[in-house]
Design a binder for these strands. Sequence first.
DNA 1: TTAACTGCAAACCGTTTGCAGCCCA
DNA 2: TGGGCTGCAAACGGTTTGCAGTTAA
Lengths: 150, 150
Amino acid sequence: MEHRIDKIKKQLHSQSYKLTPQREATVRVLLENEEDHLSAEDVYLLVKEKAPEIGLATVYRTLELLSELKVVDKINFGDGVSRYDLRKEGAEHFHHHLVCIECGAVEEIEEDLLGDVEKLVETQWGFQVKDHRLTFHGVCRVCQEVTVKA
Amino acid sequence: MEHRIDKIKKQLHSQSYKLTPQREATVRVLLENEEDHLSAEDVYLLVKEKAPEIGLATVYRTLELLSELKVVDKINFGDGVSRYDLRKEGAEHFHHHLVCIECGAVEEIEEDLLGDVEKLVETQWGFQVKDHRLTFHGVCRVCQEVTVKA
DNA sequence: TTAACTGCAAACCGTTTGCAGCCCA
DNA sequence: TGGGCTGCAAACGGTTTGCAGTTAA
């Protein structure tokens, strides 16, 4: 954890940005909730618990900055809210998501499922792939069981 | 074209909705610009050329309705605007997109690239896939050539 | 007849921005 | 002492909603 904060601090410094207390608090919230997909508002409320004086605009500015540095990915599940997802260490690709249409749960898939598909797109369509976004919408394991029982 | 409008008309009637002149004008704009990925505002401006008295709210309501009927898919490329994409006839799956990060062009892929991947997700993660969203971000053929020349 | 539908304008809400003050190099 | 940074509040822009009037089955 401290290691990862140090790393981010260096990334910031390398572009002459500072790791201010507000920014550090924001990063810590992201680290502590790595499994969730927090919106800016979510992050704001969690940061506010530790640093009540922080402003929403600062959270937005920090998330934007972290997004530029590729520390987080800004994602969008189509509900009109941006969510921010910490990149796993060493992850070169954006990970995938399973969104449950029953309960809204979001599961992550780290495996690279698209290697073959990307090769196909490059050769067949002549499109040079830089990144991808893959989301499956469906029914998660838990909700399938509930449906069976009901 | 008329055939497709008839079909949509029937779909509406089956749920006791009407195909009003405003709705028909909206559908026609979508049909005439099937290759584009129009925002609600885009649709509004195009409809207004034919039916100047139409209101923006009606366009939104129509697009929402068509989206519920699965006549169009509401998509989002992360630029804060929803776009509406007519489903191809008989398409059971959402199609994929190639978004160029240089020029912003959006190309469509109709082929179902994810058959194997979906099977994997169902067996390995126990997730019942209903639909998917796949977008590749990268450099399109045209922009690759421009870069080489420059 | 009456429920669906419409246009308008206001409201909404997530996000961005202008600004004056602050803090640290 | 000056540029990065902050909190605040106002502005912004896409979308939704309340409402009174209209239309179509």
